[in-house]
Structure formats: structure tokens, C-alpha cells
């Protein structure tokens, strides 16, 4: 009789595992967030397209990278449901990087929030991986911390070498912290269904970087590569660039 009892136990344990695995495989409600970078109604085309800002300064953009982290949705009951391990590096050159999806419980949601940049904790916690891997070129090696937002380009209004525009915006503590929380209302309260993907499309109008809150002419400030008052001002400006343009229930 001993053998069968051992057998029963093993069978029981094994079946538990299989059952557990099945639960994980069940389709989950899904949400997708997509970022569309534009410049004042025009699509962003790196290098070739010329744009004009509100100060009549002509410019081109050659590189655009920024971090979106700590994404969460708020329910009608004012509960905040966070995406787990929420760190995304949006890279204009890589289409796949401009969308991300995650699991969230079916519920009625009223708003979406996220941080532009990487929260301070991850800036002081040593070597990270994935989106936060320092090999992504978004990490300072002279003054520890992530470059939260990186935009490079050229403009005849810039007096620096090669008429460069170079904004490497970082700094995660103190008065000149550049972390900005963006809170976007979803207009209609909407229900995220099971087995359906809801896609939220966010327009990011980079034209705002020059004047959304502070007037920052290329002529005066073509370069910002250290934390400080200017970096914080640029962060104020780009934090106003995010706007939901569409919500699709697929």
C-alpha cells in the first residue's frame, strides 16, 4: 500500500503544477499604449524634414529618445492600477519601441498617468537591465543618472559647432529634478474588456519644447547636457507635449 500513496502524492503535486500553468495561459485583458511623435501637426521625419518653431527658427531632428515609466491607469473608484516593472525607452528610430502593452484587470478607467523619465529609485540602485541597460546610451557616466529625454538635431539658429541642437535632459533630485508626471484623461470613461486589446494613442508634439511654458529659443539655448535650471525648464515644456488622440477597442 505504500507505493500507491507515494504515487498519489506525486500525482497530486504534478497536477497542481499543470493546473497552475493553465491559469497562467488564460488570455488576459490587454492594453496597448502607442506614442506618435510629431512636430506641430507634421509627422516627425528624422534628419531630412525641416521644421520651423514659433520663433521662426528652422531646425531638423536627427535623434529622439525618451523614457516613459511608472505607467498606471486610474479607475472610476479612484484606484490606481500600475503596470508592473514599467520602464520603456521610446526610440524614434525603432517603431516597435513606440508601443508597449501590458496586462490590467478589466475595469472602468478614467485616466492614464506616467512619468517622463526614470524614477529616482532606479537612478540610485546600481546596474539595471532591459530598457534601463546603460548600453542604450541613456546613462551618464560622469554624474550617475539616466538621461530621461534626448533630442538632437541642427539649426542655423544654433551658434555651436555644426549648428547643433543637443538636449540631454537629466537630473532626478533636488530643485532641478526633471522628472515630470503626465496625467491624461481618457475623456469617456471606458471599460477594458477581457479578450480585447484597447489601444491608447498618444500624440507627442515636440514643437512644445520651445515654448509650452518657458520661451526657449534655439538661438539662446541650443545645448543642454547637464542637470540644472535649463534642463528643468525644457522638461516643463516637453511635459506639455503629450495628448491622447485616439482610443481603439480592437
Amino acid at each position: 500500500m505504500k507505493m500507491p500513496s507515494v504515487f498519489c502524492w506525486l500525482f497530486f503535486l504534478t497536477s497542481c503544477r499543470i493546473a497552475g500553468a493553465q491559469v497562467n495561459k488564460q488570455p488576459q485583458p490587454d492594453i496597448k499604449v502607442t506614442f506618435v511623435n510629431i512636430i506641430n501637426k507634421l509627422p516627425l521625419v528624422l534628419d531630412s524634414a525641416k521644421y520651423i518653431n514659433c520663433f521662426k527658427e528652422t531646425f531638423t531632428i536627427s535623434r529622439l529618445n525618451y523614457y516613459i515609466s511608472n505607467v498606471s491607469l486610474q479607475t472610476t473608484g479612484k484606484k490606481t492600477i500600475p503596470e508592473l516593472n514599467s520602464y520603456h525607452l521610446i526610440n524614434e528610430e525603432d517603431t516597435a519601441s513606440k508601443s508597449f502593452s501590458f496586462f490590467i484587470s478589466p475595469n472602468q478607467y478614467t485616466s492614464l498617468s506616467f512619468l517622463i523619465g526614470v524614477d529616482s529609485l532606479k537612478n540610485v540602485s546600481g546596474a539595471q537591465t532591459g530598457a534601463l541597460d546603460p548600453l542604450n546610451g541613456m546613462f551618464w557616466t560622469w554624474n550617475t543618472g539616466y538621461i530621461m529625454f534626448k533630442m538632437e538635431g541642427n539649426s542655423p539658429s544654433s551658434s555651436v559647432v555644426n549648428n547643433k541642437i543637443e538636449y540631454h535632459i537629466g537630473g532626478f533630485s533636488g530643485a532641478n529634478n526633471v522628472l515630470r508626471k503626465v496625467h491624461l484623461n481618457l475623456n469617456d470613461t471606458f471599460f477594458i474588456h477581457q479578450e480585447k486589446i484597447t489601444e491608447i494613442i498618444i500624440k507627442v508634439d515636440l514643437d512644445k519644447i520651445w515654448n509650452a511654458q518657458h520661451d526657449l529659443k534655439i538661438m539662446k539655448t541650443p545645448v543642454c547636457t547637464t542637470p540644472g535650471v535649463l534642463a528643468a525648464g525644457i522638461a516643463d515644456n516637453y511635459s506639455k507635449a503629450f495628448e491622447i488622440i485616439k482610443i481603439i477597442h480592437q
Partner: peptide
Amino acid sequence: HWDGGINHLEVQPLSPIT
């Protein structure tokens, strides 16, 4: 670093390597 620019031992080698 002499100026304390690096806040964690793990990320220190990035500076000399690069």
C-alpha cells in the same frame, strides 16, 4: 570619483570603460 559623481559601485566602471 573625486567629485562624488557616481552614486553606486556597480555603475562606477562605466566611466573608465567608456
